[in-house]
Computed example of a mutant assay.
Amino acid sequence: MALDDITKKARNFLDDNKVKEALTSQQAEDISDKLLASAADAANKVTGGKHEDKIEGARKAADDKIGND
Score class of each variant (00 low, 15 high):
residue 2 A to Q: 11
residue 2 A to P: 15
residue 2 A to S: 15
residue 2 A to W: 10
residue 3 L to W: 14
residue 4 D to A: 13
residue 4 D to H: 05
residue 5 D to M: 08
residue 5 D to Q: 11
residue 5 D to W: 04
residue 5 D to G: 09
residue 6 I to G: 02
residue 7 T to D: 13
residue 7 T to W: 09
residue 8 K to L: 08
residue 8 K to S: 08
residue 8 K to F: 03
residue 8 K to V: 04
residue 9 K to W: 09
residue 9 K to V: 11
residue 10 A to F: 14
residue 10 A to T: 13
residue 10 A to P: 03
residue 11 R to S: 13
residue 11 R to L: 14
residue 11 R to H: 13
residue 11 R to G: 09
residue 12 N to W: 08
residue 12 N to R: 11
residue 12 N to T: 14
residue 13 F to H: 09
residue 13 F to E: 08
residue 14 L to G: 03
residue 16 D to M: 02
residue 18 K to E: 15
residue 19 V to K: 05
residue 19 V to T: 12
residue 20 K to L: 03
residue 20 K to P: 03
residue 21 E to Q: 14
residue 21 E to F: 03
residue 21 E to P: 01
residue 22 A to T: 04
residue 23 L to T: 06
residue 24 T to Q: 07
residue 24 T to G: 04
residue 24 T to M: 04
residue 25 S to W: 02
residue 25 S to E: 03
residue 27 Q to V: 14
residue 28 A to Q: 09
residue 30 D to G: 04
residue 31 I to M: 08
residue 32 S to K: 00
residue 32 S to N: 05
residue 33 D to Q: 12
residue 33 D to V: 02
residue 34 K to I: 07
residue 34 K to S: 12
residue 34 K to N: 07
residue 36 L to G: 01
residue 36 L to Y: 01
residue 36 L to V: 05
residue 36 L to W: 00
residue 38 S to H: 08
residue 39 A to L: 13
residue 39 A to F: 07
residue 40 A to P: 01
residue 40 A to T: 00
residue 42 A to N: 08
residue 42 A to V: 07
residue 42 A to C: 05
residue 42 A to H: 07
residue 42 A to W: 05
residue 43 A to Y: 06
residue 43 A to E: 10
residue 43 A to K: 10
residue 44 N to T: 06
residue 45 K to C: 02
residue 46 V to Q: 12
residue 47 T to G: 07
residue 47 T to H: 06
residue 48 G to T: 01
residue 48 G to H: 00
residue 48 G to I: 00
residue 49 G to L: 05
residue 49 G to C: 04
residue 49 G to K: 04
residue 50 K to D: 10
residue 50 K to E: 13
residue 51 H to R: 13
residue 51 H to A: 15
residue 52 E to T: 15
residue 52 E to Q: 14
residue 53 D to K: 15
residue 53 D to L: 07
residue 53 D to E: 13
residue 54 K to Q: 15
residue 54 K to L: 12
residue 55 I to R: 01
residue 55 I to C: 00
residue 56 E to V: 08
residue 58 A to Y: 10
residue 58 A to F: 12
residue 58 A to W: 09
residue 59 R to C: 04
residue 59 R to I: 04
residue 59 R to T: 03
residue 60 K to C: 02
residue 60 K to L: 13
residue 61 A to Q: 07
residue 61 A to S: 09
residue 61 A to P: 02
residue 62 A to W: 02
residue 63 D to C: 05
residue 63 D to I: 06
residue 64 D to N: 14
residue 64 D to W: 06
residue 64 D to V: 07
residue 64 D to S: 14
residue 65 K to I: 07
residue 66 I to G: 00
residue 66 I to C: 04
residue 66 I to T: 08
residue 67 G to S: 00
residue 67 G to E: 00
residue 67 G to N: 00
residue 67 G to W: 01
residue 67 G to L: 01
residue 68 N to M: 06
residue 69 D to R: 12
residue 69 D to G: 15
